[in-house]
Structures are given as structure tokens and as C-alpha cells.
């Protein structure tokens, strides 16, 4: 495995956090795994039994060529097939806000996995709030770089939104990590964090 590749994985802080959470030898399912970068890294360095789901055929090809067991399909359909508690961790990184039915996806994740790791961009970040307040337009910035008409994001949620959903659904939050750039945030995460990573469990 090339050094460049390892750096690519570790330069994404959410990946770095995820790799630190997952213990050696776990069974992992990565939903929306892209070109399989994360699971290939986990297979190589943590000896995990990893699977991935990805919709885009070009990305699936790259992932399989990399040796990752990735299949082409949508997240919801794929989740339906798996037996209960088939995985130790189910990862959904930067995809929740793009899911048609986020609640169904989260429930599916907690059915097939003991734990779900969910990373998403925080729509409550102050830069998003200010952009909206001062421009009067749909916010565009580093976190949400798309024009409203070509954005893959169809649900906009904040750290507080996610925490309230976990409370409502009775999903214990095992860990939550908040990131801004390459730093971890400990205060006012709903205002200050750009990306949030939650580890939730099923009861």
C-alpha cells in the first residue's frame, strides 16, 4: 500500500477518528464507501472483515480493483438483505444528509450492526448561519460547496438535530466527536463543529 494512499486516508479527519474507534478484527460495513479507501485501509491495518456499498459504478470498480468487497447498489436496499446484527460497526460517512429516508437508513444500520458510526457535516456551524443571514441565499461554503440546484444533499441537519433524534429513538450515544478543520472541538459543538461523528448503539 502506497504511503500517498495512507496519507490520503489519514488526512481526512473523520476517517482518522473512525479508524481509531474500530477495534482490530471487527466486522465492518461501510455505506456509501466511495472508492473503498477507508475499508481497504481498515482491511490492511486492522485486519477487519469489511464490506462496502456504493452507488456509482466507477467508484465500485476502483474499490473492487483495490481488493475491497464492495457492491454496487443503494444503501436502503442493501441494508434490507442483511441478517440482524451481522456487523460490529456500520459506517455512514458524509452520506446521511444525502439519503432519501435518513431515519430508515439509521434504523437499518442499527438492525444489521451492533453499533453505527455516523459522520455528517453540521448545518448549524456558524459559517453556515452567517452565510444564510447575510446573503439571504441558500448557504454555500467549504462544508456545503454546492449550488442549491446541483447539491447531492437533500436533508440539512445540525448536531442538535441529531442528538434530539437519538433521544427520541432511544439510541444511546456512546461517543460523539466534533471537528473543525484538523482540530477537535469541545465547546459549543452545534455552533463550532464543521463535522460531527457519532457512535450510537441499538438497545
Amino acid at each position: 500500500m502506497s504511503r500517498q494512499f495512507v496519507q490520503n486516508v489519514l488526512s481526512r479527519l473523520d476517517y482518522k477518528i473512525i479508524t481509531s474507534i474500530i477495534p482490530e478484527g471487527s466486522r465492518v460495513l461501510d455505506l456509501g464507501c466511495g472508492d473503498g479507501e477507508l475499508i481497504a485501509w481498515l482491511m490492511e491495518h486492522k485486519n477487519v472483515d469489511a464490506r462496502g456499498v456504493e452507488l456509482m459504478p466507477e467508484l465500485v470498480q476502483t474499490a473492487i480493483a483495490r481488493g475491497a468487497s464492495v457492491y454496487q447498489g443503494d444503501i436502503e436496499t442493501s441494508l434490507r438483505d442483511y441478517p440482524d446484527q451481522a456487523f460490529d460497526y456500520v459506517i455512514l460517512s458524509q452520506t446521511l444528509q444525502q439519503s432519501r429516508h435518513p431515519l430508515r437508513v439509521l434504523r437499518g444500520m442499527l438492525r444489521v450492526g451492533k453499533r453505527a458510526i455516523v459522520a455528517f457535516p453540521n448545518f448549524g456551524h456558524y459559517s453556515v448561519r452567517l452565510a444564510h443571514l447575510f446573503s439571504g441565499r441558500a448557504p454555500r461554503n467549504r462544508l456545503f460547496p454546492y449550488e442549491w440546484y446541483d447539491s447531492p444533499n437533500i436533508h440539512f441537519l445540525t448536531v442538535d438535530d441529531f442528538e434530539m433524534l437519538c433521544a427520541k429513538e432511544n439510541w444511546p450515544v456512546e461517543r460523539s466527536i466534533f471537528l473543525a478543520g484538523q482540530r477537535e472541538i469541545h465547546q459549543f459543538p452545534n455552533l463550532m463543529s464543521e463535522v460531527a461523528v457519532f457512535v450510537i448503539t441499538s438497545r
Partner: peptide, 21 residues
């Protein structure tokens, strides 16, 4: 092919799948 893949997933087998254009 999807029937095969779906049945394998149902048994949690290690399966990669791609539909090539």
C-alpha cells in the same frame, strides 16, 4: 446477478458486485 448477490448478503457472505456499462 442481483438475485445471487442478494441471497449471498442474506447469509452475510463476502460478496463484491459490479454492473459494468
Amino acid at each position: 446477478s442481483l438475485e445471487i448477490v442478494s441471497a449471498l448478503r442474506g447469509r452475510n457472505r463476502d460478496v463484491a458486485y459490479c454492473e459494468l456499462p
